[in-house]
Design a protein around this nucleic acid. Structure first.
Length: 555
RNA sequence: GGGGGAGUAGCUCAAUCGGUAGAGCAACGGCCUUUUAAGCCGCAGGUUCAGGGUUCGAGUCCCUGCUCCCCCA
């Protein structure tokens, strides 16, 4: 790390304002160092969070001490220090406001448990966020009362510095809970000027790129990310309670299987071979069923080399689970229970949330009632007016719904792909976005890893869950006949040529695993980022991913 | 890939018909020991995303490029 001290080169004439502001902060940092204090602090014990500190205020002790100081003043004596029974706390926080009164300096400190006072009156901020936070905690640093060199250090404080304060809890005349500092330390000098103190960082690009600033200036972001973490934990607990074993399977794969998507390619030097980053963990998890693990799940980071959108990040997180001797109905119960449990957890954070109804943009999504069910076939026919099997009508309807009937090379696209596009274009939007809905019994041709229905093999035992106009994930009764699986792989390879939406791999080893014998099973994949979007009311997937994909900053 | 919107001081934003780029916050120099987005006085801070063009004159109009947002393929 390079040291850039003021003793080096004085500021150049043409230096930008940002550099000037940083230089001033470096000078303050060095002034602190000159007091014999490390401006970057060290390990500190006995710290409590700001909301806990606020809770320790004791009115009785505060009143008693005020009475003693009044008495002492009247008598012209020093107050009896032993009479000070006010609880003492030691806290760390970032300075978000500073009022320098000369001999008395006021600070507002923030940590992950606090937010600006204004937030609590902002109707845009969800009650859940307000409920979870306390206002930033006030500190008073009196030249008379703080031990040396605390006041000299405090005079070098800037907005954005992280500081440690110790002292008794009192209330000001206006009734604000305050730590009256007896000792002050610096934990980390901030060289970069912070965003504007009232509006914070609002530039969406900067919020994603510099999430570390977004997190401490925007309590809503902090809340969202903390809630995401808790939901992940809740999902794991939910799965463990049902006897599922969490496993890790390869991210680097010789063949990217388990879904139809473009993979990222990378290269392994040691074996002189290209590898793919997984687009789904499915085929490995099913191998574990073959191996005798009855219930497995993986919280899986998947990678798809496709576009970015408010609903797509190239790396995203899914939860896939497989249950031996289950089927797609088993998975339906699992999914509904899991989503409802997550919704209940989030609702619990809202004071005024009704019975399991959560806002998502303009929608109010109802997680209380049983999720809706409709077959692919019925939904298709209701929306388009003809049957799924009616390929002629499909071809005629395609242009109206902006669905391509031919590839860019001019070849005819397979009817099933046109059906699928029509379904996505015209049928999916007819699903009530406020009622979570399972669309069941997809065409077998769209689902090469799914077991066909015994009474109607053109359709298969698969559902997709839709909530709030988003696809949350599919589940299957898993195909476990190796010969049928091999045939479907071959069909996919041969049938659609270069069409991107088809599987392009024949996974020999997976078929081999099925030949060893996989028990009948249900499997599920849920998009966890999207579940977080729904439950935490985030308009963009980037709002629930700490560091979303961004083009590198030009410099 | 196409369409629309945006990019101005460290941050948040102004700038009328094309006519001297401004404000608040932050910073800096002062005053102030119970302040509440503290206040008062003073002082600074700009490659208007980049490059080209039109014009007496461009933040503003035109062209090209870059980045972000939204919609579409």
């Amino acid at each position: 790390m390079s040291e850039d001290t003021p003793s080096q080169a004085p500021p150049a004439e043409d230096q930008h304002d940002a550099h000037r502001l940083e230089q001033q902060r470096r000078e303050k940092r060095d002034a602190i160092a000159d007091l014999g204090v490390d401006p970057y602090g060290s390990a500190t014990s006995d710290l409590i969070y700001l909301n806990d500190a606020r809770d320790k205020y004791a009115k009785k002790a505060d009143d008693a001490w005020n009475a003693e100081t009044a008495r002492a003043k009247e008598a012209g004596e020093d107050p009896n220090r032993d009479a000070d029974q006010r609880p003492r706390v030691k806290v760390a926080g970032r300075i978000v406001l500073k009022r320098d009164g000369g001999k008395l300096i006021w600070l507002q400190l923030r940590d992950h448990t606090t937010g600006p006072a204004s937030l609590f009156e902002d109707p845009e901020i969800p009650t859940a966020v307000k409920r979870k936070l306390d206002p930033d905690l006030q500190i008073a640093i009196s030249k008379k009362d703080v031990e040396a060199p605390g006041f000299e250090i405090a005079q070098q404080f800037d907005l954005g510095d992280t500081v440690i304060v110790e002292g008794p809890l009192m209330k000001t005349r206006k009734g604000e809970t305050t730590i009256w500092a007896s000792a002050v330390e610096i934990a980390s000098k901030s060289i970069t000027p912070p965003p504007e103190k009232w509006s914070g960082l609002t530039d969406i690009d900067q919020r994603y790129r510099r999430r570390y600033v977004d997190l401490h200036t925007n309590p809503r972001t902090m809340w969202t990310m903390r809630m995401r973490s808790r939901l992940m934990s809740l999902i794991r607990t939910h799965m463990e309670a049902r006897g599922y074993l969490e496993v890790d399977t390869p991210v680097l794969q010789a063949q990217a299987g388990g879904a139809a998507a473009k993979p990222f390619v990378t290269h392994m030097n040691a074996l002189h071979m290209d590898l793919f980053m997984r687009i789904a963990p499915e085929l490995y998890l099913k191998r574990l069923l073959v191996g005798g693990m009855p219930r497995v799940y993986e919280v899986s980071r998947n990678f798809r080399n496709e576009g970015l959108s408010p609903r797509h990040n190239p790396e995203f997180t899914s939860m896939e689970a497989y249950e031996a001797f289950g089927d797609y109905n088993t998975m339906m119960e699992l999914a509904e229970g899991l989503v409802r449990a997550c919704a209940a957890y989030v609702c619990d954070e809202y004071h005024d949330a009704g019975d399991l109804v959560l806002p998502f943009g303009d929608l109010n999504i109802d997680y209380a009632d049983n999720f809706m069910q409709i077959t692919f076939r019925d939904l298709f026919k209701n929306a388009l007016g003809f049957d799924v099997d009616d390929h002629d009508s499909a071809m005629k309807a395609a242009p109206k719904h902006k669905v391509r009937t031919h590839t860019e090379e001019g070849a005819e696209r397979a009817p099933i792909l046109i059906i699928n596009d029509l379904f996505e274009e015209a049928a999916e939007p007819t699903i009530d976005p406020q009622r979570p809905t399972f669309v069941t019994d997809y065409p077998s041709a769209l689902s090469p890893l799914t077991k066909p229905k015994a009474d109607d093999p053109a359709y298969c035992e698969r559902w997709d869950l839709f909530i709030g106009n988003m696809e949350i994930g599919p589940a299957y009764t898993e195909l476990n006949d190796p010969d049928v699986q091999a045939a479907k792989f071959r069909e996919q390879l041969a049938g659609q040529g270069a069409d991107e939406e088809t599987f392009r791999n024949f996974d020999d080893d997976f078929v081999h695993a099925l030949k060893v014998g996989m028990p009948p099973a249900g499997g599920i994949g849920l998009g966890l980022d999207r579940i977080c979007m729904l439950l935490l009311n985030a308009k963009s997937i980037r709002d629930v991913i700490l560091f979303p994909m961004m083009r590198p900053e030009a410099d």
